[in-house]
Amino acid sequence: MANAREIEKRITSFGKTKQITRTMELVATSRMKKTQDRLFAAKPYAEKMQDILSSVNLEEHSEAFPLLQSREKVCRSGLLLITTNRGLCGGFNANLIRLARQKMDELKAAGTEFELHVVGKKGSNALRYLGYEIVTARTDIGDYPSYEEGAEIAAMFIEKFVKGTIDELHMVYAEFRNVASQPAAIETVLPLQVEEEGGGDGPQAEFILEPSPAEILENLLPRIVENRIFKALLESAAGEQAARRVAMKNATDNAEELIRLLTRSYNRARQAQITQELAEIVGGAEALA
């Protein structure tokens, strides 16, 4: 049994750790709120974008727009992995990296070349360590990604896709389902896949398209790619905070439990010490008498 003073030291140290994890939990909670608000704020724009897209008859025009065309043979594929810059968020990054590696293994098995682009320090460090070649790594995107950052990334891929450097683009990110669930998800960004309207919301009004459907598409399609990537950045940012909150809450709870157990052994050790001292005093007094 360790002596009382040693146990006391450990209790103090756990108490300090608990204070830190508790603070991190609170910080993550407030950041999560903010990132979540931004995610919701981005929704109307994305929805309207989709509305406008569905007002254009795509089939007529898909020939003219490379962004919409699937390549017959995919020789080289792009993979964008979105991770975080900071750790202490549980298995959040590990899940994303695992999914990305799975996809890369798949591509390798199919004999497709691929190039890897990573957002976030955690992903780029881990994959570099594992020996993957990373073409671009962006570690400058913070807790609140801006639209411009999404647009920059999108512009790079659009250029690569149109030039033919890559034939498709997959994106691995954390899907923000709710506060408790942010599973890793994979999505094909390029060529753009447009969900067919099921015709559920009644007959679409006939829109006048100015100056021409083609010109609208030319402007609209890149915006849609930008928006998809921006949305993935936002979702990952919100997911990161949510995951960190949970991880830090668990850490705080663990610290509390440890402190409780240690306090018990501390009391026991202290009691034993007192009993021993008493016995010594009594023994001493008896010897004198």
């Binding site: 007002s55 254009v56 829109f207 006048i208 398209l209 100015e210 100056p211 609208i216 609209l220």
Partner: peptide, 8 residues
């Protein structure tokens, strides 16, 4: 009462 329109 403008007619439905989409423009860039």
């Amino acid at each position: 009462n403008h007619a439905p329109l989409v423009t860039a």
